[in-house]
Amino acid sequence: MSATNAAIGYAGNFGSPTQLIIVLVIVLLLFGGKRLRSLGSDLGNAIKGFKNSMSNEEAEKAEQEKQEAQKVIDQKPANTTTAQTVEKTDHKQS
Results as ranks from 00 to 15, higher is better:
Ala7Pro: 00
Ser38Gly: 03
Gly15Tyr: 05
Glu68Phe: 02
Arg37Trp: 14
Gln70Leu: 15
Val23Glu: 05
Gln67Val: 14
Lys71Gly: 15
Leu29Arg: 11
Phe50Ile: 12
Asp42His: 05
Glu63His: 07
Ser41Tyr: 14
Ser2Pro: 06
Asn52His: 01
Thr81Lys: 02
Glu63Ser: 06
Thr82Val: 07
Asn79Lys: 11
Glu57Cys: 03
Phe14Val: 12
Met54Asp: 09
Asp42Ile: 03
Ala69Asp: 14
Glu65Cys: 10
Ala7Gly: 02
Gly40His: 03
Gln64Ala: 11
Leu30Ile: 07
Ile26Thr: 09
Gly40Leu: 08
Val86Ser: 03
Leu28Pro: 07
Gly32Glu: 06
Glu68Gly: 01
Ala3Ser: 05
Thr18Ala: 07
Gln84Ser: 08
Glu63Cys: 12
Thr18Trp: 14
Ser94His: 03
Asn45Ala: 15
Ala11Ile: 02
Lys92Gln: 14
Ala62Lys: 07
Lys71Ser: 03
Phe31Arg: 01
Gln75Lys: 00
Ile26Trp: 12
Lys92Ser: 10
Ser55Trp: 15
Asn13Gly: 15
Asn13Cys: 15
Lys92Glu: 11
Asp74Pro: 06
Gly44Leu: 11
Tyr10Trp: 07
Glu65His: 15
Thr82Arg: 15
Leu28Ala: 14
Gly44Ile: 01
Glu60Trp: 01
Ala83Leu: 12
Ser94Pro: 06
Thr81Pro: 00
Asn79Ile: 11
Gln84Asn: 05
Val86Tyr: 09
Thr80Leu: 08
Val27His: 11
Ala46Phe: 12
Asp74Cys: 03
Tyr10Leu: 00
Ile47Asp: 02
Val23Thr: 10
Lys48Ile: 10
Lys92Phe: 08
Leu36Asp: 01
Ser94Cys: 04
Ile47Gly: 03
Gly40Ile: 02
Thr81Asp: 07
Arg37Ala: 14
Gly49Leu: 00
Met1His: 01
Gln67Arg: 09
Val25Ser: 10
Gly32Val: 08
Gln64Gly: 09
Thr85Ser: 12
Asn45Leu: 05
Ser38Leu: 09
Gln67Lys: 15
Leu28Ser: 10
Ile22His: 02
Asp90Pro: 03
Thr4Met: 01
Gly12Cys: 00
Pro77Ile: 04
Ala69Ser: 15
Asn45Cys: 12
Gln67Gly: 07
Phe50Ser: 02
Asp74Leu: 04
Lys66Ile: 05
Ile8Glu: 12
Thr89Glu: 10
Glu87Gly: 00
Phe50Val: 05
Lys51Gly: 07
Met54Gln: 06
Thr80Tyr: 13
Asn5Cys: 08
Gly32Cys: 11
Met54Tyr: 13
Thr81His: 13
Gly9Thr: 05
Leu43Asp: 02
Thr82Gln: 12
Gln70Met: 14
Gln93Pro: 05
Leu29Trp: 14
Lys66Pro: 13
Glu58Arg: 09
Thr89Ala: 10
Ala11Lys: 00
Ser53Ile: 09
Asp42Glu: 09
Val72Tyr: 13
Lys71Ile: 04
Glu57Pro: 00
Lys48Glu: 12
Ala3Cys: 13
Ile22Cys: 11
Val23Ile: 06
Pro77Cys: 11
Ala11Tyr: 01
Asn56Gly: 14
Leu30Ala: 02
Ala46Gln: 01
Glu63Lys: 14
His91Val: 07
Ser2Lys: 04
Ile47Tyr: 14
Lys51Ile: 10
Leu36Cys: 01
Ile26Ala: 09
